[in-house]
């Protein structure tokens, strides 16, 4: 442990040593050296600082599973101090002062981080945003999207979850890039360069659970099914002038236990990430 200063240390509780030989406590577990130490009741370090002889500092902390831990002053200050210390910032006596956040403030931070009511963070201002679509206020079920995107080099199709990932089955129906000569390129034939979603899978011609894309009982063979909060990113072919599609809450997300669900989303078109 040359150069390492343990910051937080503990002996693992007994239930950590009940695993049989070869068992892994979780997908992340299973380091045999660590496991042997835990079984032997040796002290484990879960926060540490490292002063490197070659210059530069390191701080490791295995905690922060629960966001609510931020309401613990000691926990929060340890994280702030560690981050400031590796950055070469001077730590005031008593540590970096910060107000104890209320749970409501943490809830708001999580909501913002998930892109509630707007684009997920990290995207440039969208060139188009649809009105809010909700299962509980279900008209119109399809929203026509038609937006000029001349000279754009990238396309980001975003479905935001309005703060809660719940039944947000989002479908992009018949997405097209329109060229100057009026010809359309079927976006479902393009290979996306990246995608992410709040749940399930993003799929061509299927909803996020693998069934047909369907709105008001009509099946749409051509489309992309996903689940908000979702982003699908493409690099552009040359000469594109417009993007058109229909955005919809898929039938699969509309009803839960016989009632209209909590599904709520907006569709956004962006042509860049913030850089």
């Amino acid at each position: 442990m040359k150069g390492v200063t343990p910051v937080l240390s503990a002996i693992a509780p007994l239930n950590m040593v009940k695993f049989k030989e070869g068992d892994k406590p979780s997908a992340h577990g299973g380091n045999p050296d660590a496991f042997a130490d835990v079984k032997a009741g040796k002290t484990q370090h879960f926060a540490w600082a490292f002063d490197w002889t070659k210059g530069g500092c390191g701080f490791g902390f295995t905690g922060f599973h629960f966001f609510a831990n931020m309401t613990n002053d000691s926990f929060r200050t340890t994280m702030l101090n560690g981050v400031a210390w590796v950055s070469g910032l001077e730590i005031p006596a008593g540590g970096i002062a910060s107000k104890t956040p209320a749970q409501a403030e943490l809830d708001a931070m999580m909501t913002v981080a998930r892109g509630a009511g707007a684009m997920p963070v990290g995207h440039a201002k969208p060139v188009l945003e649809t009105p809010l679509m909700m299962a509980k206020n279900p008209k119109p079920r399809l929203i026509d999207i038609d937006v000029a995107i001349k000279n754009a080099k990238e396309l980001y199709l975003v479905a935001s979850d309005q703060g809660r990932i719940s039944c947000d089955w989002a479908s992009w129906i018949e997405p097209r890039l329109i060229l100057a000569d009026g010809k359309g390129i079927d976006v479902t034939t393009l290979k996306w360069k990246g995608e992410e979603r709040g749940y399930g899978r993003t799929q061509i011609g299927k909803n996020n659970a693998g069934g047909p894309i369907q709105v008001e009982d009509q099946v749409y063979a051509n489309g992309i099914g996903t689940h908000a909060s979702s982003t699908i990113a493409y690099d552009f072919p040359a000469g594109v002038e417009r993007f058109t599609a229909k955005g919809a809450i898929d039938d699969g997300g509309m009803v839960r236990a016989g009632k209209l669900s909590d599904a709520a989303m907006r569709f956004h078109i962006s042509t860049a990430l913030l850089r």
């Binding site: 922060f64 599973h65 966001f67 981050v83 910032l89 956040p101 981080a113 963070v121 992410e196």
Partner: peptide, 26 residues
């Protein structure tokens, strides 16, 4: 971004945003 294991767990984006803002304020 996102979370797994239920809301309030592994909220790394919210956590990083909080830490970054406090450092900039301090």
């Amino acid at each position: 971004k996102g979370t797994h294991g239920g809301g309030g767990q592994h909220e790394f984006f919210a956590g990083a945003s909080y830490l970054a803002r406090r450092i900039n304020e301090t």
